[in-house]
Amino acid sequence: MSVRVQRQDFDFGEEIRRLTSARTDIGAVATFLGLVRDDAQKLSALTLEHYPGMTERQLAAIEAAARRRWSLIDVAIIHRFGRLLSGAQIVMVAVAANHRLAAFEACEFLMDWLKTRAPFWKLEEGPGGCHWVEPKNEDDQRAERWTILPEGSRHV
């Protein structure tokens, strides 16, 4: 288990190697890598603010929820904070399991819950100044899907 909240960048490949090395029972690793997106050259930087201490606790709680729902071998969650330029890595989630279905589903669940429950806030910088990113209804709806089934009822 590994939850890290850090300012510095991370090495995605190295994190996956760390997750899978010295084990032979892992059959699948599903990953998500989130980047600072600038799709219309409107964004010069993104600053992520967070609630130190609480953020780590929330991420650990989200991981624990995933482990209750799926049979997982290991999980790595890394989320950066501070000022990031476009193209920079923001977040990675990697889930190791015996089989792919648990890994895929848990990875999606972790990102859906992270986006709606972990205390991070994004400030976008562009040519017109700075503004705080508004939460998206779509993210809430995605996270809500996982609450339909009671926890523990869906072990893969």
Partner: peptide, 10 residues
């Protein structure tokens, strides 16, 4: 006490 705004990480 922290005021928890709707979050926008990830």
């Amino acid at each position: 006490v922290a005021f928890f705004l709707p979050v926008t990480g990830g």
